[in-house]
Amino acid sequence: MDRHPTTLILGTGNPLMGDDAVGVIAVQRLREHPALPPGVDVVDGGTDGLGLIPLMEPYGRVILVDAVPMGLSPGAIRRFTWDDARLVGHGRSLSLHQTDLTDALILAETLGCLPPEVVFYGVQPHTMEWDQSLSPAVERALSPLIEALIAEVRSES
């Protein structure tokens, strides 16, 4: 498939599982953000797994936003790349909790269809239990998270 030169911001997670919703809520807010530059697609990936491979494939750059248990304080935001994630033990030690997403990324890489640039914005969750609201710490992280994502896509677009 031909790659087109756009960026995909892909938020993943389950909005019924407390802080796991952070990626999905972030992309919902980003869509309406006035500073979002053209040429950037913003997609709610939900809890999809293998279906994310063909979704990501056409893009030159994919920015994944998700709750990632990293052993930091709740609401802490970390930017890392797929190479960083793999170096820390094939994604597992980062506990992307969505094993489907990790499997999809590994499969895409094995098949040679992973976009050239894959960046993660991980947010440390406080709880990932049945709940439809974010914890206060993760709620407070949304604003700086969205600003960081806007800065990321504006830096090279």
């Binding site: 293998l50 279906g51 491979i53 063909p54 499997d103 590994i106 499969l107 094995t110 098949l111 040679g112 269809c113």
Partner: peptide, 24 residues
């Protein structure tokens, strides 16, 4: 599993993903 299958038979897995994408 499908991950080593992607290494040994990438064309098969790519075909499956193409077909899956159409159905989705």
């Amino acid at each position: 599993s499908v991950i080593p299958l992607a290494t040994s038979h990438p064309d098969i897995v790519k075909r499956a993903l193409r077909m899956k994408k159409f159905s989705g």
